[in-house]
């Protein structure tokens, strides 16, 4: 499946779930549901899983879904173990396995992308629920149970990366605006306020 399709399915089923995005998922989720309970972990690869874990532990009454990248997870692989240790039943860690960094922009290969067994890693870390989905139909069917609060759960999505390699000498990377360096804090404060209001 494509990243866009996966994000469409997740947003369709999310209800009141918090979505913690990073990298590719940020682009799609914020396009599909900009006013949802979202926070994106940028520019800070690797941090999404445990940012979401902290929210999940603090707010056990609602699902918290991390939309992680394979390269991002590899930066903080120990977070699988930490998530099992924290044992938050409302925590769902979804990894978009597209095998590349900078999808559709440069598509640089993630280490050992053809060999890493993410389900094996999750189960080895102690996850009791770890499943792989290769099609959006499978993901769509599984999401109600994934969001049911019977976790923690780990999910690997087999993603076909967009084939573009848009950046080149003729198409330079855009200058990053200040927005990208402020948005995590701005979104976190907004989310904090909303969560406080809805629990009052």
């Amino acid at each position: 499946m494509k990243s866009q399709q996966a994000c469409e399915a997740i947003v369709k089923h999310r209800a009141q779930a918090v979505l913690v995005c990073t990298m590719t998922s940020t682009k799609w989720v914020y396009g599909l549901d900009p006013k949802g309970l979202n926070v994106t972990c940028v520019p800070l690869m690797g941090g999404a899983s445990t940012l979401g874990l902290g929210i999940a532990v603090a707010r056990p009454e609602r699902p918290v879904v991390v939309l992680d990248g394979d390269g991002s997870l590899l930066m903080q692989l120990g977070s699988l173990v930490t998530s099992v240790e924290a044992a938050a039943p409302n925590f769902v860690h979804i990894v978009f396995n597209n095998g590349v960094w900078f999808e559709n922009l440069a598509n640089l290969p993630v280490p050992a992308a053809k060999h890493v067994d993410y389900i094996g890693l999750a189960r080895g870390a102690g996850y009791r629920h770890a499943d792989r989905y290769a099609s959006v139909a499978e993901l769509d069917a599984a999401l109600p149970e994934l969001l049911s609060g019977n976790g923690p759960r780990f999910v690997e999505l087999v993603i076909e990366p967009e084939g573009g390699a848009l950046w080149s000498g003729a198409n330079l990377q855009a200058d990053l605006q200040d927005f990208h360096f402020a948005r995590m804090g701005d979104e976190a404060r907004r989310l904090k306020d909303v969560l406080a209001t809805r629990s009052a």
């Binding site: 941090g47 445990t50 902290g54 532990v57 603090a58 903080q76 924290a86």
Partner: peptide, 24 residues
Amino acid sequence: MLNCCTEDEAFMIAAGLHVGGRKA
């Protein structure tokens, strides 16, 4: 107590707890 594998995780979890209205 929440035991972590790395300090990166500890900072992120503390931030998430703060977003959720807890103090770490």
